[in-house]
């Protein structure tokens, strides 16, 4: 059971990082106190994990099956990969790291289910694309609604603030539902813990990360999103929540960071395509390629050394 520490560590780092994607805007712009956001985010992440997290666990079970010690390696190398990518200031996808590590572990044991892998990789492309389309549609619809309502300054402000809180709660729910499989999926697949225990442990680990260490990341990442106006930020968080929730229902763990990037890109295309920073976009794409590749390499190396020793 001590090996579950690695899962908790991964969940903790995931919660600490990804909370910024749902509440970074509200906290960094001082619309909501950190503790209000953190408690809401942690609560809804646990709720999402417990109520809708089992679909993703089932996908991980399909993807590969191996022993507890390999599951420990997968969690540890995924956490290492995420940390390394964070050092390079690239958007981190825990899902990609975990899947890359699991494929390496599966290949090492000759047990990868390539059919399920195809479904996961297709969804990686679909996440930013889906969020991009969702953001464009939401931007038009919500924009038309607000123009028609012609709200006064305070009502307009309240609409956006409440919208950001609601979208944040929804995003946190989707984060828990979708990403809990990244945290405990390998251990559930290995049979060490039951799916119910997996969703509770994973959900609580994410919540712990949100509550204890999400503040600095919220302040950093959130300020990046605030460069959009509040209306666009609401559209981004809602589009992200919709997209990640859809994937949670399908049972494919995806990255909230990728969804955010897709949604921001969608708004950029609607407003003025020239404002899109292609260099940053290129770096993000590189990060998406390198994350699973590095996790794969770490896991392969770890297992190879372990076998040699």
């Amino acid at each position: 059971m001590w090996r579950l520490f690695s899962a908790f560590f991964l969940g903790w780092s995931l919660g600490a990082n990804d909370a910024s994607n749902v509440f970074g805007t509200a906290v960094s712009s001082r619309m909501v106190r950190f503790w209000t956001a953190a408690l809401l985010c942690a609560g809804f992440a646990v709720l999402g994990a417990v109520l809708q997290g089992e679909e993703g666990l089932a996908t991980y079970a399909e993807l590969s099956s191996y022993g507890v010690s390999v599951a420990f390696v997968v969690a540890m190398t995924s956490a290492l990969t995420v940390t390394l990518m964070t050092l390079f200031k690239l958007p981190v996808s825990t899902s990609q790291a975990v899947v890359g590590a699991m494929i390496a572990a599966g290949l090492f044991a000759d047990g990868v289910q390539w059919g399920s892998l195809g479904k996961v990789v297709a969804c990686w492309v679909g996440t930013p694309l889906g969020a991009l389309v969702a953001a464009m549609v939401l931007y038009r619809l919500l924009g038309a609604l607000l123009n028609r309502l012609d709200l006064d300054l305070f009502a307009y402000d309240a609409f956006l603030r409440r919208g950001l809180i609601l979208a944040g709660c929804w995003g946190a729910y989707a984060l828990g539902a979708n990403n809990v499989a990244n945290v405990t999926g390998p251990f559930v697949a290995s049979g060490l813990i039951s799916p119910i225990m997996g969703v509770w442990l994973g959900g609580l680990a994410i919540a712990a990360g949100v509550l204890t260490y999400s503040y600095p990341v919220m302040m950093t990442v959130g300020k990046g999103i605030v460069s959009l106006n509040a209306f666009s930020a609401l559209v981004v968080v809602t589009a992200e929540a919709v997209t990640v929730h859809v994937y949670a229902a399908v049972g494919v763990p995806v990255s909230t960071s990728q969804a955010v990037v897709g949604a921001v890109l969608g708004i950029g295309l609607l407003r003025d395509a020239r404002t899109i920073n292609t260099r940053t976009l290129g770096n993000v794409a590189l990060g998406w390629l390198f994350t699973p590749a590095i996790a794969f390499a770490f896991t392969w190396a770890w297992l190879w050394i372990e076998r040699a020793v």
Binding site: R30, R33, L153, F154, Y156, L160, N229, A230
Partner: peptide, 11 residues
Amino acid sequence: RELLPESRGDL
């Protein structure tokens, strides 16, 4: 702690 940053700035 009141209002969105842009509303705050405008006011």
